[in-house]
Structures are given as structure tokens and as C-alpha cells.
């Protein structure tokens, strides 16, 4: 299949970037989206050009390294999947694909399609932990946890920190990320003790880093590759209220 790719190119963090259009011939519908980019890079290298920089690691939707805003949607058009899980069978011969990096003040572009997501680590450092030393794994039934809580905490913990929520949000808000981290700990006995200060500190850090605020459009939930629920944001709001009032 032949494709027209409109890709954001930017030499480094300080350089001014722009879109460059590539005509790619001979891509296959059996490729994954990232393999298609690998193929593009092979053709660029053969021509002596600088290949397009993009992030990837596990390529099976569990590490959260890949990103990409594809044709106006975070991780492409499929719900509940990361860019690495996107297949070229979703595209037709002759399609034009616009590929952009995540856009947010808190996620500056480092090169081409790679952004610096250190802001998420800073939010975690502000409260995404329990300060007591948990020691070795305890005996399974020594701390009773209701099944429902365990399931919800696990759902929240499935966040891979990719940043799709920030990209999907019209306000570039990190609320779904923060909510998942707050929920996974607040729902379990070990994390309960610091639940209030955790919510307050993580929100304060996100505000400081320049993320936007939540207006409940729900776009993050739809674009999240792990389908993390907005219900966690409601829990974050409750924890925040309890912590500050």
C-alpha cells in the first residue's frame, strides 16, 4: 500500500519544528503501525536522511513507552489499545496519516515525535507511594481486602503512564493519570493512611507543572489504552475534598 505521511519533525528541544510530508510506497497491511514507521526509517536511512525519532519498547501494549497522536487521536483510532497495538490493516491504500507528538506544556518535545514525560514521575514523587517500609510480601490473608476493592485497585493500577489521557484532553489535564495512582493506593489498607495528603500533593504538583484542569469531557477514558474509568477521577475529587476541607 502507498501512504502519505505528514510527520512532525523537530531536531531537538530548542529547535523549531514543522510537518514534513513523506510518500511511502510498498507498506503492507500486515505491518503494525510502528513497523510501518520502521520501514519509513529504513527508506530514509538508505537515502541518507535522519530517521524519524519515536519511542517504543515492548510493542505489546504493556510498557507505556509508545505515544503518537495519529489523525487527531491519541494512540490512533482504536479504543483500548496503544500505538504499538495498532495495525496497518486499519488503513487503506492512498490514505493520508498525520502523526504528531503528545502536545502539552508539561510534555516538551525532545526530538521529532518523542516528548519528555518526566512530569509524570514528578507527580508520582509528590505522593504516588506509601512512606512506610512495606518489607517482604506478607502472608496473603493477614490483611483482609474486600474483593471489590482489590479489583478496583487493580483496574487503577493498570495505568501504564503513557500520557494518552493528557493528549486526549482538550485541557491537557493529567487528572486520569493522577486519579489512577491515587485510587490504586487509596482503595487498599496500606495506602489508606496517606490518601488525603497524597491527593492534595499530587494535584498541587500537576498544577505547578502546567497541566490543565479537568472539565469531565471523558475523552481520556475513551483514549486510555487500559480503559481506566472516570470513576477514579470522582474518587480523586472526593479524596481532595476530604484533604482540604
Amino acid at each position: 500500500m502507498n501512504l502519505t505521511l505528514k510527520i512532525w519533525r523537530q531536531k531537538n528541544a530548542k529547535a523549531k519544528g514543522s510537518f514534513v510530508t513523506y510518500k511511502l510506497e510498498g507498506a503492507s497491511q500486515e505491518m503494525s503501525f510502528l513497523e510501518m514507521l520502521d520501514y519509513l526509517n529504513t527508506t530514509l536511512i538508505k537515502k541518507g536522511e535522519d530517521p524519524v525519532a519515536f519511542e517504543h519498547d515492548c510493542r505489546e501494549g504493556i510498557c507505556g513507552t509508545c505515544s503518537l497522536y495519529i489523525n487527531g487521536r491519541a494512540h490512533g483510532q482504536d479504543s483500548m489499545s496503544a500505538t504499538c497495538e495498532l495495525r496497518m490493516s486499519r488503513y487503506k491504500d492512498g490514505d493520508t496519516i498525520v502523526i504528531e507528538p503528545w502536545r502539552a506544556k508539561a510534555f516538551p518535545v525532545i526530538k521529532d515525535l518523542i516528548v519528555d514525560r518526566l512530569a509524570f514521575e514528578k507527580i508520582l514523587e509528590a505522593g504516588g507511594f506509601i512512606s512506610a517500609n512495606a518489607g517482604a510480601a506478607p502472608e496473603a490473608n493477614s490483611i483482609p481486602v474486600p474483593r471489590e476493592h482489590a479489583d478496583k485497585a487493580f483496574d487503577a493500577a493498570s495505568c501504564i503512564g503513557c500520557g494518552a489521557c493528557v493528549s486526549a484532553c482538550k485541557n491537557a489535564s493529567a487528572q486520569l493519570f493522577i486519579a489512577s495512582k491515587v485510587s490504586q493506593l487509596a482503595l487498599l489498607p496500606q495506602g489508606r493512611a496517606e490518601a488525603k495528603s497524597r491527593a492534595r500533593n499530587m494535584i498541587a504538583k500537576a498544577d505547578e507543572l502546567g497541566f490543565g484542569s479537568c472539565t469531565n469531557t471523558g475523552a481520556c477514558e475513551v483514549e486510555c489504552p487500559k480503559g481506566i474509568s472516570l470513576a477514579h477521577i470522582a474518587r480523586l475529587n472526593r479524596e481532595f475534598l476530604k484533604a482540604t476541607l
Binding site: 489523525n71 487527531g72 502536545r103 506544556k105 491537557a172 490543565g212
Partner: peptide, 14 residues
């Protein structure tokens, strides 16, 4: 919220 995304996306489909 406008300040949180100084550089806009070229193509947005929400």
C-alpha cells in the same frame, strides 16, 4: 487550561 497546551495539534478528532 489554554496555557496547558501552548502548541496545538494540527489535526484533532475528539
Amino acid at each position: 487550561n489554554q496555557r496547558a497546551r501552548p502548541e496545538k495539534f494540527l489535526k484533532v478528532d475528539q
